[in-house]
Amino acid sequence: MSKFELAKEETLQGLKDQMAVTGISEGRKVVAAAGTAEALVPASTPCKHVIIAAETNNTGVIAVGGTGVVAAEATREGIPLSAGDPPLHLDVTDLADVHLDTTIAGDGVTFTYLV
């Protein structure tokens, strides 16, 4: 086996080790105020993947994105989710980097994440 092949194999194994799932957890986030981006979680929470679904009783639209997410239709930024939409899958390293905004205060999401 050449040096290149050995290095390639070590790199692939390192990536597999980094992506190995060691646990699963879940949560719920209700957005208190429409028009204000809120973090999915209040503190740094390392993860590998998160699945986000709009609450089934939401009456407005939840937008998912970064700190600049906007749910209002005229200026929307981020991925919109309504009640009944398929869940959104994101590969992220920290749940605190995911932000939500809503068109109706009190709407929310449930989420499951892999660590």
Results as ranks from 00 to 15, higher is better:
residue 3 K to W: 04
residue 3 K to S: 08
residue 4 F to V: 09
residue 4 F to A: 12
residue 5 E to H: 10
residue 7 A to F: 12
residue 9 E to P: 07
residue 9 E to C: 07
residue 12 L to H: 00
residue 12 L to M: 11
residue 14 G to I: 05
residue 15 L to Y: 11
residue 15 L to A: 06
residue 16 K to Q: 02
residue 17 D to F: 00
residue 17 D to S: 00
residue 18 Q to S: 06
residue 18 Q to P: 01
residue 19 M to K: 10
residue 20 A to N: 05
residue 21 V to F: 06
residue 23 G to P: 01
residue 24 I to F: 14
residue 24 I to C: 14
residue 24 I to E: 15
residue 26 E to K: 14
residue 26 E to T: 12
residue 27 G to C: 06
residue 27 G to P: 03
residue 28 R to P: 03
residue 28 R to S: 15
residue 31 V to Q: 02
residue 32 A to S: 13
residue 32 A to L: 14
residue 35 G to I: 09
residue 35 G to D: 08
residue 36 T to P: 00
residue 38 E to S: 13
residue 38 E to D: 12
residue 39 A to D: 00
residue 39 A to L: 03
residue 40 L to E: 09
residue 42 P to K: 06
residue 46 P to W: 07
residue 46 P to Y: 08
residue 47 C to I: 08
residue 50 V to C: 09
residue 50 V to H: 08
residue 52 I to F: 07
residue 55 E to G: 10
residue 56 T to Q: 12
residue 57 N to W: 11
residue 59 T to M: 03
residue 59 T to A: 11
residue 60 G to S: 03
residue 65 G to M: 03
residue 66 G to H: 06
residue 67 T to S: 12
residue 67 T to G: 12
residue 69 V to G: 01
residue 70 V to G: 05
residue 71 A to G: 00
residue 74 A to S: 13
residue 75 T to Q: 10
residue 75 T to M: 10
residue 76 R to W: 04
residue 79 I to G: 02
residue 81 L to N: 04
residue 81 L to D: 02
residue 81 L to K: 08
residue 84 G to S: 05
residue 85 D to I: 03
residue 87 P to D: 04
residue 88 L to G: 03
residue 89 H to A: 12
residue 93 T to E: 14
residue 93 T to Q: 11
residue 94 D to H: 11
residue 98 V to T: 12
residue 99 H to Q: 10
residue 99 H to D: 07
residue 100 L to W: 06
residue 101 D to W: 07
residue 104 I to P: 00
residue 110 T to G: 12
residue 111 F to H: 04
residue 112 T to L: 14
residue 114 L to Y: 13
residue 114 L to P: 00
